[in-house]
Design a protein around this nucleic acid. Structure first.
Length: 665
RNA sequence: GCCCAGAUAGCUCAGUCGGUAGAGCAACGCAUUCGUAAUGCGUAGGUCGUGGGUUCGAUUCCCACUCUGGGCUCCA
């Protein structure tokens, strides 16, 4: 028997006996690799470990501790879930079950419109563990379309998918990406069989057997539309998470717990920042004094930056005549997302869903010269959007919110510079809130849905792109993701526990200047159409506040903390001195309060720590005599006998430094 | 809007197989005056989300609505 030679990613080669599989190869390299291997890539194709190798193959082994490896684990675990459900719920139809970020899901239809309960999840998970224990093989097979339809005759959703592949082939299209993951796009259908009773259509690859799985947990059950179609059947979806080891699973679950602890809705109640009274209606918040203090600081900071950034401030009303939104096109495109109209004074009025039409009216209020451009109009403008009831989510999805909204009117020649300085501006402002990791998406034209000439789209897209490149920023292109009126850049930030949030957007608009017939007189004494940029840094102040609350886990930095210092007199006798300390701090600009000595000191320290105050000052006999304070900073060590003047100096310079750093000066 | 789950004191939650409810924390009062993460005792606090139905009787069972949570869909 002759040997075959295969090559590995590091360029090395290995000889193996003929008929060797990928798993044999892994074993020949080392037992650790054999255990960690879950699949492989052979000559660029994703395959199972059982695949027989041929002379000259280029093989890369996929291990379970990589994203690709976890993807295989998760997809395989989804199959186990489907098998468990079909065993426990006879007659259940299974549809698709992909791996997703951190886990997987599978969608089912239960007989007679049945639904899963939380209790069912436990039973299903127990059944899955049995299947894992049985170490069932994942046996791959290939079938003609007709045979596949036979095999899945009692699974109407699978049959539908096969028929789609059939239709796609007849049309010469590739199958839907969604289906491709399940069935492949070739002329045959691949499937994986675990037992005589359970086979699922799947392009693979899968782990060799269910025994390779096990570090998983079912998380929740929810409804999901078949093919995401709102008018299609509502299926039952089970979500789970799966990992390569117990440690990785636990780390993930811990991360989820951490996120739960940081939930802005929970922290907002705990810290008395704001609330959503049910009497007010869904998606509408009231801001309590402490939340309002932080919000005001954020807004003041934003105003200050915009003032320095060459913006002019404007105010516009909350209502507008329907004609305005007819002109802007919002009624054509977004009527469903607007609050219903009010009839008054023989006219129809709407709460505004956007500030831009009104800013266009300001631009249009008199003749404009090229000397005025770029004209940057800024407003913290509150808008109202009718978000569907099921989509509301704390401050992150809300019906009344305030955009840090600006519309910049400029000439085409100014566009590139304007965008470039805008990006620096965004990063600098967001950086002040401790965000230092950004990702950028460039959304390009949707050919089926756009206004404006191809030429101007190209130039605008190029302006956005070159602004990103010019600053050395990596970005992903989202083909066809632009709004109909122009291309855009979306900016995401990574928060303290690694989550990504979309905040800022910079959008080029060719549409509104056209619709409002905006013009300026150029140096050539001719009339020209300006280009308009929509941009928001926070997006919505409310949403930004929610993100910030989670980012800081409620522990706002000193410059933003609603209460910066709490003074604790050790005993009643020290209350006068405590009040004096507070007064002097207040005089120096600090937000300070005194906690009277009617509770134990330990108790008051604890409360202050739970309140996440930046500074706790303890004052007793020694301090009263020597005009000192005991300083207990958040996250630092206690320091006794600090002269009050010294503390005030330190405190004010800390805040001043933070502010000047934030202002980028 | 759709699927599922939920709503009991300011907060976190227990409870009533149908007979109008209880704890901890918070609040308030009294005592304690204390040097860095919970002093003790006591008091008050709830039309059990809203409205209807069934019932001798509903916080509990049923229906509708509102709000909330997890998803789906949507997000200018």
């Amino acid at each position: 028997m002759s040997n075959i030679t295969i090559s590995l990613p590091d360029g090395s080669e290995r000889e193996l006996p003929e008929e060797s599989t990928v798993l044999d190869l892994a074993a020949s390299i080392g037992s650790g690799l054999r255990k960690a291997a879950v699949a492989a890539t052979v000559d660029g194709r994703d395959v199972d470990l059982g695949t027989v190798l041929h002379d000259g193959n280029e093989v890369s082994i996929v291990t379970n501790d990589t994203e690709a490896g976890r993807h295989v684990l998760r997809h395989s675990t989804a199959h186990v879930l489907a098998q468990a459900v079909t065993q426990l719920f006879p007659g259940a139809k299974f549809t698709i079950g992909p791996a997703i970020e951190n886990g997987f899901y599978y969608d089912f239809e239960l007989p007679d419109g049945g639904t899963f309960s939380e209790a069912d999840l436990e039973a299903i998970e127990a059944k899955m563990r049995e299947i894992v224990k049985e170490n069932q093989p994942f046996m791959r097979s290939e079938h003609s379309l007709d045979d596949a339809k036979e095999i899945f005759a009692d699974q109407p959703y699978k049959v539908e998918m096969i028929e789609r592949v059939e239709a796609a082939q007849q049309d010469g299209d590739a199958a839907d990406a969604e289906d491709a993951g399940e069935v492949g796009d070739g002329s045959t259908i691949s499937a994986y069989r675990n037992t005589d009773a359970f086979i699922d259509m799947c392009v693979g690859p899968h782990v060799p057997s269910t025994g390779k799985l096990g570090f998983f947990k079912l998380q929740r059950v929810s409804g999901a539309y078949w093919r995401g179609n709102e008018k299609g059947p509502m299926l039952q979806r089970i979500y789970g998470t799966a990992w390569e080891s117990k440690q990785a699973l636990q780390a993930h679950l811990q991360q989820l717990e951490e996120a739960l602890k940081r939930d802005h809705r929970k922290l907002a109640v705990e810290q008395d920042l704001l609330s959503f009274p049910s009497q007010l209606g869904g998606g509408l918040a009231v801001w309590h004094p402490k939340g309002a203090t932080i919000r005001k600081l954020i807004e003041d900071y934003s105003r200050q930056r915009h003032e320095h950034g060459g913006y002019e401030f404007v105010y516009t009303p909350h209502l507008a005549n329907a004609k305005l939104f007819e002109t802007s096109g919002h009624l054509d495109f977004y009527a469903d997302g607007m609050y219903p109209p009010m009839e008054m004074d023989n006219g129809t009025y709407y709460p505004k869903p956007m500030n831009c039409p009104m800013h266009c009216l300001i631009f249009d209020s008199r003749q404009r010269s090229y000397r005025e451009l770029p004209l940057r109009l800024f407003e913290l403008g509150t808008v109202y959007r009718y978000e569907r009831a099921g989509t509301l989510h704390g401050l992150l999805r809300i019906r009344g919110f305030t955009m840090d909204d600006s519309h910049i009117y400029c000439s085409e020649e100014q566009l590139a510079d304007e965008i470039s300085s805008l990006i620096s501006f965004v990063l600098s402002v967001l950086g002040a809130f401790g965000f230092d990791e950004f990702t950028f998406n460039l959304s390009t034209k949707d050919p089926d849905k756009s206004v404006g000439s191809a030429e101007i789209w190209d130039r605008a897209t190029e302006a956005l792109r070159s602004a990103l490149v010019g600053q050395g920023l990596d970005y992903s292109v989202k083909e066809g993701d632009a709004a109909f009126y122009g291309p855009k850049i979306d900016i995401h930030v990574r928060d303290a526990i690694g989550r990504s949030w979309q905040l800022s957007t910079i959008q080029v608009d060719f549409n509104l200047p056209e619709r409002f017939d905006l013009e300026f007189v150029g140096a050539d004494n001719n009339r020209h159409r300006p280009i308009m940029l929509h941009r928001a840094l926070f997006g919505s102040v409310e949403r930004f506040f929610g993100v910030l609350l989670e980012h800081y886990a409620g522990a706002f930095p000193t410059w933003l903390a609603p209460v910066q210092v709490r003074v604790l007199p050790v005993a009643v006798a020290h209350e006068d001195y405590a009040a004096d300390v507070a007064a002097q701090l207040r005089e120096a600009g600090a937000r300070v309060e005194v906690a009277a000595a009617d509770d134990g000191l330990g108790k008051r320290i604890r409360t202050a720590k739970m309140d996440k105050l930046p500074y706790v000052l303890v004052v007793g006999d020694d301090d009263t005599a020597a005009k000192t304070v005991g300083v207990n900073p958040r996250g630092g060590d206690v320091e006794r006998d600090v002269p009050l003047d010294e503390f005030i100096g330190r405190f004010t310079s800390e805040v001043a430094d933070a502010e000047s750093a934030a202002l980028g000066s």
